[in-house]
Design a binder for these strands. Structure first.
Lengths: 94, 94
DNA sequence: ATTTATTTGTGCGTATGTATC
DNA sequence: AGATACATACGCACAAATAAA
């Protein structure tokens, strides 16, 4: 279950990106492996965020160069997040 | 007027990002200056693309680190695009 | 080759929130 | 208070690629 605080000042897509970034950083999802599908992530958040918002989170990770989406297959980890990468997972304000 | 080919294989947001990137690269919009508002760009394309899609294009440029959106003020140029930056302006296939 | 299911990609419309002037 | 402008979020639809049967 992915915890998303809808009341937080931190945007939901940023929260979700942080969770995924952390999973990758800790090696839970190794380089070369696929992350859960957008639909799966939607379920993992308990429906707290829509697929469009999940796409935004993935888009952020793509921009950071740590994942890459492949149409029809999935989103794959291509690199571990840099140590200097953003990780405001604890920035909840609720 | 910004030319957007809706039939092109190149996504509209990528086309628009390329046009803006080129304007910035050529110095038409200098560093520190504001780019046209999302609404202005919508009009510049003759309504070919919606504001939502324009936001996607700007998002791409933000990810490249060449512009930065400031809530309530506008989107500002913070750096010229790198020479190695993508510029598939001629990649129309329609 | 066709169908079906899965999965990501793109695009629009709308609403609400927040910040600036 | 009002106008302007960007930020976030949802829901929906369709396209395209992949994979399996």
């Amino acid at each position: 279950m992915i915890e998303i605080d809808r009341e937080s000042i931190t945007p939901m897509y940023v929260q979700l990106a942080s969770v995924l970034r952390e999973r990758i950083r800790r090696g839970e999802i190794p380089v070369g492996r696929r992350i859960p599908s957008q639909h799966e992530l939607e379920l993992e958040t308990g429906g707290a965020v829509s697929r469009r918002t999940i796409k935004s989170a993935i888009g952020a990770l793509e921009a950071e160069g740590i994942v890459r989406g492949v149409q029809g297959k999935g989103v794959f980890v291509i690199a571990k997040p840099d140590a200097a990468a953003p990780s405001e997972g604890g920035m909840t304000a609720g």
